[in-house]
Design a protein around this nucleic acid. Sequence first.
RNA 1: GCCGACGUAGCUCAGUGGCCAGAGCAGCGCAUUCGUAAUGCGCGGGUCAAGGGUUCGACUCCCUUCGUCGGCUCCA
Length: 640
Amino acid sequence: MVRPRAPVDSIARRGLQWGCWFCKLANGYRGSPAGDVPGKRVRAAGRRSPQCEPPAAPLYRAGTEGNGMENDSLERLRHSAAHVMAQAVQELFPEAKLAIGPPIQDGFYYDFEVARPFTPEDLARIEERMRAIIAEDHPITRSEMSREEAIRFFEERQQPYKVELIREIPEETVSLYAQDSFIDLCRGPHLDSTGEIKAVKLLSVAGAYWRGNEKNQMLQRIYGTAWPSTEDLDAYLANLAERERRDHRRLGKELDLYSIHEEAGAGLIFWHPKGAMVRHLIEQFWKEEHLKRGYQFLYTPHIASEELFRISGHLEQYAESMYGPLDIEGQRYRLKPMNCPGHIMIYKTHLRSYRDLPLRYAELGTVYRFERSGTLTGMLRVRGFTQDDAHIFCTPEQLVGEVVGVLDFVDFVMRRFGYTYKAYLATRPEKSIGSDAVWEHATRSLVEAMESRGLNYEVDPGGGVFYGPKIDIKLYDALGREWQGPTVQADANLPERFDVTYVGPDGNEHRAVMIHRVVLGSMERFVGGLIEHYAGAFPLWLAPVQAILLPIAERHGDYAHQVAAALRAAGLRVEVDDRSEKTGFKIREAQLQKIPYMLVMGDREVEQGSVSVRSRDAGDLGAMSVEGFLSKAQAEIAAA
RNA sequence: GCCGACGUAGCUCAGUGGCCAGAGCAGCGCAUUCGUAAUGCGCGGGUCAAGGGUUCGACUCCCUUCGUCGGCUCCA
């Protein structure tokens, strides 16, 4: 319930997975056996190490900076909290089988196999029991066992997941951590005693497949959070509340931006006038900036014969994300899941010379991709969306320079919206097409481009698309959350499949290289993210209504409409609220609608030909002339 | 898709195995013409997601479907 919906994306999640992988490796040790085992027995069985430190625990860290995981002491705290939770569960549900329980960003979780899913009441009981365990301040001790010993140990305790984990641990010795009557397979490190956990709270329960594989048993995962002090916990909970306040689904409704309809189908966005205005403004900006950078615009069809997607390889590689065929006069058509094949069609309408390259084709292309019902989320995860897609056709020699150009563009756009970002290099995935040499060249070019810009990056192994490696940019919003951002993909495979060529200076045909890139991503997701980033308070240049005019009494209505006309003529988006309501009420409503400026006008203003300006953020700014307000607004827009 | 929770007026929510299902906000009408976050009074509005079933009787119990939310998985 309170659990934050992570806006995060692949990398972050993949990061998490790496974490899990390391945990697993380490940690086969992580689960925990039944609580009926006295710690002494273990001690007898294993050698007790002097302190609660693993001998030389390699540092593992999941994910990236800013995800809260770099703080080892927090990790330790949360890891121990997970153990305490497991102990509580074990005591309250003795038949529970323990799986894994790692620390994660902002908290921890533990997976259990239980006969009946946990209820909110169960969570309350578990939490209560945890508090008792913490209050009792049990020392946490580390011990070791041989693999065989450990396997026997957990088999006796009927902990099959632990046994499975241990079997995969290469080392001959595994470590265990114990507190009170509870002992768990775990690499550690941990706190010295349960009493060091100062603030803990369980947040939610959810189903989770054993090892994330849907072919496996579904376990019950309890998420919790733990902090060094109650102040920290409170701050975190306040942050959660803030995220909820900013949730684009809530604001989308309150600000009348978009809707989704059961009658129309899940994952399909209907843009209301105000949402459409925001999108329009972004698109306008997008178009202007593309023209400045030598892009040309295209429009391509939403459906195409299957043949096109057979050639492109989508049918083969991407079928599970595509909708089924449409029968059109006996021919099979498909909704397009990507825009690239269409752009290639246009490229191929002429013989292209090296003198023509690079060709930069851009389209706000609407694509449809199948997403499983359980994954749909507001505007962030939908089934039909418009990508700000572009394909750059160039020579292999131009590749690096073009990628640099895209990275510059990305930087410019992200600054405009106030996002900071971080780059990842996603390398060849298992399911992919093309030769090693081609992948190698493409990957090297991306690296070169990033290095020439001095852009730091991390590697995301196997994170590339089936046709080529990519640079993924992750954005960080006003709350420091990570979002999926721009991507740049180098592709030598589609050009091959479609035989995309140009005539070189030597008069021979050469294979063109293609760059796929999006800057905003999908308009749906980008706007959804922006809503949360700005908490619905769009900057002046993006605000669907920039100013609302508030005549105090009926007799000021004419003047208000006059001023409104003047402001509109100057290009501002303004409305007049001439209802017979009190000014305080109108202000309240305008404020709730997050309209940047409210222009109050009564007898004084009419007489002086002025407006009294109230800012959404700063309150009453006092009176100024209409022209004064106009130039102030225009300056603010220009400064964006 | 899977696990769990949920789906009552435009919105946010309350509600009981059986008179005509409620509140606040919004809407409409009337009055008010009021200077920086809610003027007053009145009125209208719901096939209680949809479809089946159990029952003398269901919004309330069961099943199915659709959708939403939190996760798993995947991606823009």
